[in-house]
């Protein structure tokens, strides 16, 4: 067994000790994970953003248009001191403003219009029979939207529609819950398989 497998196995067991209760071994592994993850993110960001997107084109190929993002990035360091922290608002403003500007058409197209057009399907099939599933989708979308409509009190027909909407929402939450649990379970099975096969050699 190689050294890497021993370390990975011991750290996996350290994390699993949390199933008993919070303890120093788990806490040690948790702090190590946070530290290593921050270090990893820092290195990857440095390589993929700073070196590949900024320093190489700017200083290697003379692409002076990248001076602006460099200056904006350096302005972020204003955060290090309370007196200069206001400077960091400018790069944040660029991020937030450009993100908001790009989000307007992006939300209109793929988010809203695609979902609306996907919900509207023919209610009678080519064989002349009603398309019950399509009807359920339309009723579900409209009633769920009625549930989230807070400009009027949920009474009368709006009350009935919002009540039906909650039933559709419950089905959504139930199926999403089931999927989440099963995906986590499959990850756990993967970890258990690693422990039993590669680390402890109890199974083949």
């Amino acid at each position: 067994m190689d050294f890497g497998t021993i370390i990975a196995g011991l750290l996996t067991l350290a994390i699993l000790t949390f199933l008993y209760r919070d303890n120093p071994i788990y806490k040690l592994a948790e702090y190590l994970l946070v530290g290593v993850a921050v270090g990893y993110a820092l290195v990857i960001a440095w390589k993929s953003a700073m070196v590949d997107l900024l320093f190489t084109p700017l200083f290697g190929q003379g692409d002076w248009s990248l001076l602006l993002p460099l200056i904006l990035g350096l302005m972020m360091f204003g955060r290090f001191h309370a007196r200069t922290s206001f400077i960091s608002r400018v790069p944040l403003a660029v991020l937030i403003g450009s993100g908001a500007g790009a989000a307007v058409p992006a939300m209109l197209g793929p988010r809203i219009l695609t979902q609306v057009s996907g919900s509207v399907t023919p209610l009678v099939g080519t064989d002349g029979l009603p398309n019950w599933s399509g009807l359920i989708v339309i009723v579900g979308v409209l009633s769920t939207l009625a549930y989230f409509f807070f400009s009027r009190e949920h009474r009368g027909s709006l009350g009935v529609a919002s009540k039906v909407g909650t039933w559709f929402l419950m089905i959504f939450f139930g199926t999403t819950f089931g999927y989440t649990v099963m995906s986590r379970m499959s990850t756990f099975i993967g970890r258990a398989e690693f422990l039993l096969t590669d680390f402890l050699h109890l199974t083949r």
Binding site: A45, W46, S48, A49, M50, L53, L54, L66, L68, P69, L70, L72, G73, L74, M76, F77, P91, V94, L95, S98, G99
Partner: peptide, 9 residues
């Protein structure tokens, strides 16, 4: 470029 660089900083 801008988003990535500012996010890296």
């Amino acid at each position: 470029q801008y988003w990535q660089v500012i996010a890296a900083f």
